[in-house]
Amino acid sequence: MRKFRTYNQVDHDTGSELLEQVLDQRARLSQRLSSVGTIVAIASGKGGVGKSAVTANLAVTLASRGHAVGVVDADLNGPSLARMLGVTGQSLEDGEDGVVPAAGAAGVSVISMELFQEGADAPLRWKEPSSDTFLWQSSMETTALREFLGDVAWGVLDFLLVDVPPGTDKIRRLLELVPNLPVALMVATPSEMSRAVVARSLRMVREAEVPEVGIVANMTEYVCPACGHEEPIFTGNGVERLSSESGVSIWGRIPFDPHLAVSTDRGAPWVLEDPNGPAAQAFDALAERVEGARNPRAERVP
């Protein structure tokens, strides 16, 4: 067998500049996020647990408490936060320092794939080639998410919430881009099915050594608007079991309120419409807990 030098034995630069460009991308992303106080991933692993509604309402709650808040809708295939935060149809300013995010409810800055697409029902499609898309589509979506995080002129933020779509691979994607993710909220409903799926995602963020991880129990009970009586919606105690088995505490319990879904769907988060209601109080308590988990590792650049 012939002998010749292998990759790691060759240290001469070829001039292809591939590695340099990747490093430059990372540096730009890091520089951009240096002005963000705390990045909070809001994930689940499971769909249909109300993750995006939790993101929208938590964002406006934090903003109402005096914080500068941004939201990244990382669900590129099923974006919903532009609508939930009332910015559908807004044009984005092509600023010198990057794309200026849309200004949503309570002044929350928003970036979402929905803002770039023609038509509310447009599926996410990338240009040619159409063959073997599975090979490069994931790479394309990772790049788009990197641009959402790094090419947007966020300015100085106290919190940047990232709504992570279902699937443990999507959490991994975010962790690759933000390896020092300081806070992750895992949204679960009390059902046993939710517990089983969310447990996988929870394990992933714990293995990634995310320092602050909390569970948000969503749709825990129905509160009668007339008498205030609370009635559980799901049978079982999946969230408590999830917490005890993982050792991760429950940071918030959000009661089910049909108004919350309706108002959030029309771009007016319910916590602003009924600030004294049970749901708003629950989000306020959650926001207080999130404030207590501010990233100790990152100093915000004024």
Partner: peptide, 28 residues
Amino acid sequence: SMGIKIGGREVPTQPMEVTRTSLEGGSD
């Protein structure tokens, strides 16, 4: 799809470059 070019770039990276140039059906 990674936003890189073999041989390097002639112009600096533009904000949202890959999303703008690769998204099918981008809104005007």
